[in-house]
Structures are given as structure tokens and as C-alpha cells.
Design a binder for these strands. Structure first.
Lengths: 139, 139
DNA sequence: TCAATCCCGACGAATTCACTCGGGATTGAG
DNA sequence: CTCAATCCCGAGTGAATTCGTCGGGATTGA
């Protein structure tokens, strides 16, 4: 997750922390992170004070990698999956629409490849601290 | 559907015909075509010998129009819908991932806009008649 | 030893997708 | 005029996917 990118270089982050910051159930995050670990994108440290860390720098991890790890091969339709071993649909011979999906798929992967985790880690300077519409202003 | 593109200029095609050629249930096609009609992409003729026709030339209908008619506004995630009146997700303020989805969406619409129905009507000369692997070869 | 943390498999509810069903409204042909 | 072909329409169903839960086991620093 993006949260991990923000946290990069500060040691492992526990799921409990991330769950609190992202407001998502911890049990759910566990499932997601399993895929990230198997894809080699994050490393885990077990035991007390353990947690997860990015396996390498945020700007060397493309969103395509992340998405593939979380949701499988990019495939707008099953007949246009990235996975070379995908099953062709029965109509494959006459189905010209496949061309369309392949183009869409390439457009998507292009967009995903062009962004890295670092692009989504908000530069602190330009990001407002979310003022909660005037609740606790110091003025 | 593409089938209608092939049929362009030959008078209305009945759903029964299309269903036979595409090997899809007629009742299902009815549902799809309703959206195409409401979007002004096809016109219908009722009564005996009626059917559907493209409302204008295949090369003036982009696949983006077709897809929007059939599946609603392009939206890889609900927080990045084309529809300006979409609901922002609760995290909208701090969620930088939105940027990613908007880019993906634009890549997709770009690809869809660049193709017309005419691109998917197979040029007869280059399309094999599907030989059914050597069943009736004349050699 | 103990508590924090990761690890893992199974389960469940909500939503979406592809498709069916049954019947009504229109209209050309005989 | 009548009839059959065809479009029109809303409701319903079954499977798959997505998002999330639950309970318990394995590791490890303090």
C-alpha cells in the first residue's frame, strides 16, 4: 500500500499501525499483504516489534507490479489477459473485438508502468493536513 | 454489436438473425440493444420484417460510445468515474491513489476513442473462413 | 515465559454479470 | 381484417467475484 511507501526507511510497520492509519480492518490487510510478500514487494519481520517493509525504494516499484500482485494479471476481458497461458474464448477465430481489448490492456499497463509508488506518496509540502473544515484552527 | 457494422447498409437486421450469427441468446441481445437504442446508436423498425440498423456509418461510431452505452460511464474505480456527478469516496481528501485511477481511465478512454466500429468489422479479404482444422480440405 | 506480531485457511454477505421468462405493443403481408 | 413476425419491457435467477470476518497457530524480542 501507499502507506508503506510513506513509511519507507523507518523500519517495519505493523499491520495494526497501518490498519489504524488507513481505517481498514487489520484482518483484511493481512490477506492483501500476503500477495505483496509473495511477489517480493514487501518483506516481513515476525515476532514482537515486527511488521512489514518495502523490499526496495518506492520509486523503483511501479504500480503495475503492485496491481498485478494484488489483483492478478491485467486483463480487461479474459480473452485479453497478460497471462500468456490464458484460455482463448471459443469465438477466438472470428472475434475481432479481441483487438480492441488488447489495445485497452496495453493502454492500461502503459499508464500503470509510468507511475511508481513514489508518485503516490504525497509530497508533504503540497498536501494539506486535512483541516476538518475549521475544527481546530489555531488562529 | 460488431455484427451490425458488418450488416451496415443492408437494411434492418432482426435480433433472431444476429442471435444466430453471434450464437447468443436472443432475449439477452434484446437487453443490450435497448441501451444502444437509447444512446442513439441504433434505430429500430417494429413489426414484421423489422429489426435494427446502425444510426450512422460504422467509422463515425467510436467504441467509447458503444461501451458507454452498454456498460455506463468509464470508471476503473468508482472514485474515478467519467460521470461528473459521481460520489466521492470518504477518503477523498487524503487518497492520492485517485490520481492513478484517473490516469488509467484517461488511457482507457483514449484507446476506446481511437477505435471505431469500422476498425472491428473484419476486412473480408484478410479473414480466414475458419477451416475447422482440416475437415474438408480439397487437396 | 509472555505478549506482540506475522501466518494461514475457511467462511460469509453484498454486489455484479450474463442470462431467462413471460407477456405486451406494432406493423407488414396475405 | 387478421395474423405472424418482430420489437419492447420489467422482473427474476444462478454463478462468480469482491470485500471483509473469524479463529487459531507459528515466531520472536523483551
Amino acid at each position: 500500500m501507499v502507506q508503506l511507501g510513506r513509511h519507507y526507511g523507518a523500519g517495519p510497520a505493523s499491520l495494526a499501525e497501518i490498519a489504524a492509519e488507513e481505517d481498514l480492518p487489520r484482518a483484511y490487510l493481512e490477506q492483501l499483504v500476503i500477495n505483496l510478500r509473495e511477489a517480493g514487494l514487501v518483506t516481513s519481520t515476525r515476532g514482537a516489534r515486527g511488521g512489514y517493509e518495502l523490499a526496495h525504494a518506492p520509486d523503483s516499484i511501479t504500480m503495475a507490479e503492485v496491481l498485478r500482485a494484488l489483483e492478478g494479471p491485467v486483463a480487461p476481458m479474459l480473452c485479453a489477459s497478460e497471462d500468456p497461458g490464458h484460455v482463448g474464448c471459443d469465438r477466438s477465430a472470428r472475434c475481432t473485438v479481441n483487438l480492441l481489448w488488447v489495445r485497452v490492456r496495453d493502454a492500461v499497463t502503459g499508464a500503470l508502468d509510468s507511475m511508481t509508488l513514489a508518485d503516490l506518496v504525497p509530497p508533504r509540502s503540497t498536501l494539506q493536513p486535512i483541516p476538518l473544515q475549521g475544527a481546530v484552527t489555531s488562529s
